[in-house]
């Protein structure tokens, strides 16, 4: 975390859905190894922002650079960028027709052309890491939500990304399963991943984030370290949000 290499750089990014201005003047930088939590009321553009980083969403103007690669540059291979920026979704999006092991190995085997045995060995290690080593041959529908989300994390890790994007990873989970997913995410925070996480889990934000980004109405309203953000937010909008979410 001591180096200052910039992993994600968004400059003056604008995004419209028809007439709706979804992202306004976004300037946002994430350094290597940094853990950034994005929060804000629903509809504030958090998910849109994070989905722009791996080009799941197009943006109207401005520039986004991921690990030195300009997304708008025609020469940039978006598929390569996506391999470096793994994503974990709110609704897991595991492949229901594949076993857990296949879900994890399909990326490395089919995209990175890693030999199957090697990929499977790695997959089993990852399952160990996310604490579900015995479910490898089951199908996603046989697992609980929390387990599925941990498989989704393992699937993202299997591609050996530099960046991991979490898009509300715990929002679709039953309360008793949130903890197990957050624990895995916390363990990732101690490794040298660059993490951008959209979440309402303020406990997680307080504990592991280096920086909190607060968004509202498509704009970044406030950026601060967790301590200052939670104890004396600079803007009224953030104060109101924190009051609502913490009570």
């Amino acid at each position: 975390m001591n180096n200052n290499k910039i992993m994600i750089k968004m400059q003056n990014v604008q995004k419209y859905y028809g007439d709706f201005h979804a992202l306004r003047d976004i300037d946002f930088t994430v350094k290597e190894g940094e853990i950034v939590v994005i929060c804000g009321p629903s509809g504030s553009g958090k998910s849109t922002l994070i989905r722009c980083i791996n080009a799941l969403e197009d943006f109207s103007s401005g520039s986004i650079t991921v690990d030195g690669k300009d997304l708008k540059d025609k020469k940039t291979d978006i598929k390569k960028v996506r391999q470096e920026a793994g994503m974990v979704f709110q609704h897991f999006n595991l492949f229901p027709h594949k076993t857990i092991l296949e879900n994890i190995t399909i990326g490395p085997v089919k995209v990175k052309k890693i030999p199957k045995e090697k990929a499977e060995k790695k997959a089993r290690e990852l399952l160990e890491k996310v604490k579900i080593p015995h479910q490898a041959d089951k199908y996603p529908s046989q697992l609980s939500g929390g387990q599925q989300q941990r498989v989704a994390i393992a699937r993202a890790l299997a591609m050996e990304p530099k960046i991991i994007l979490f898009d509300e990873p715990t929002s679709a989970l039953d309360p008793e399963m949130i903890g197990e997913v957050l624990d895995v995410m916390k363990s990732l925070a101690t490794e040298n991943f660059t993490i951008v996480c959209v979440t309402h889990e303020m406990g997680f934000a307080k504990e592991v984030a280096n920086r909190i980004v607060f968004m509202s109405d498509g704009m970044i309203i406030e950026e601060n370290n967790p301590h200052d953000f939670f104890n004396n937010p600079k803007t009224d909008r953030a104060k109101r949000f924190l009051k609502e979410i913490l009570t």
Binding site: N54, L56, K79, F89, F95, K110, V111
Partner: peptide, 19 residues
């Protein structure tokens, strides 16, 4: 979400569709 998950792994359109 299935299209997105496949894309996120870096799959091509062809791989996404047929796999």
């Amino acid at each position: 979400g299935q299209f997105e998950a496949a894309k996120t792994l870096g799959m091509s359109g062809y791989q996404t569709f047929f796999l």
